[in-house]
Design a protein around this nucleic acid. Structure first.
Lengths: 162, 162
DNA sequence: TGGGTTTGTAACTTTTGTTGTTGCGTAAGG
DNA sequence: CCTTACGCAACAACAAAAGTTACAAACCCA
């Protein structure tokens, strides 16, 4: 099953936007993420509805942050993109008649629910400012900001198997 | 993203096999799960390699359990089917050059790793005998075993939205 | 007002992974 | 030797994210 990268992408964008003066167009953002402008608009729409970003049309338009990163958690962003399914494993059937399958779903569901609860709690604990701070530390170590200077991430479609 | 139902299915099968005298053919199992015999063989192959089940060809052949349910945990079964990815959300890129993306991946990865650890711990805590016991309780309440008497689960492809 | 810029959206294609299907080989048994 | 089953490879169907195309709507500036 393919993984949904929308959350990761939105986090990435928001932090870049914070380090950016003025607004960024979908085109520019798509360039940073090595992605498609329309896909960016599609995904950012959720953030706009929540009031986390604003978009403006026409000359000098684009996207701007409308609240500080310290007031945004991973959970906020996750919810803004529509709370997509967290797990790639799950029951074969949601409303089984078979009592065995009901018991299986209950056991599996309990474990998954617990893990999801923990995950969302962790998401709620981390603000985008925390991530930005981690970025600053990484940059201090490296000595320079290599983000988006040249080659973008091209490793995405490389097979994981050796 | 579509959910992987192999774990759920294998749990379902194993418990039925335990309540079954003798062996069950792929055809019969596929009937119980409302699935395809070839898919069953494909998935059960992993369980066979681990020694959890045996398969025999020819007349009277089929699949049989080769160890008690109390000695099988959800984790064992999960590993037997090849430890498929647990999460449907994940990073856009595994080896990003961008330091922002590295920081995002670190934060996201930490939360996901913690949730996965908890999930697999829970999987390790639950034996198939536990699930079978839960089934017995459900049957006691209902008064009869309605499992696979008539209609199978057909709700699978029904839209979740109202 | 007119033209270029940029978002908003719908429709369609591409891609990736699970599931389903077909076909043929092999082993077991009567 | 013929039927029953599994083993396996190759391919089709399907679902969901991502990419693409096309066009409308809003905005800014000259």
């Amino acid at each position: 099953m393919r993984q949904d990268s929308r959350l990761s992408r939105m986090l990435h964008v928001l932090i870049h936007m914070n380090r950016h003066e003025g607004s960024a167009t979908s085109e520019a953002i798509a360039g940073m993420l090595n992605a498609n402008p329309v896909v960016i608009r599609r995904t950012m729409a959720g953030l706009r509805e929540k009031g986390y970003v604003r978009s403006e049309k026409g000359h000098g338009g684009g996207w701007t942050l409308s609240r500080p990163l310290a007031e945004l958690t991973l959970l906020d962003v996750y919810q803004a993109i529509g709370e997509p399914p967290v797990f790639a494993v799950g029951p074969a059937c949601d409303q089984p008649e078979c009592l065995v399958e009901q018991a299986v779903n209950a056991a599996l569901g309990d474990a998954l629910a617990e893990a999801e609860k923990l995950l969302l709690e962790r998401f709620g604990d981390v603000t985008l400012a925390d991530i930005a701070r981690d970025f600053d530390e990484r940059m201090a170590k490296t000595g320079r900001d290599v983000s988006h200077e040249g080659a973008e991430c091209r490793a995405r479609h490389v097979s994981a198997k050796a």
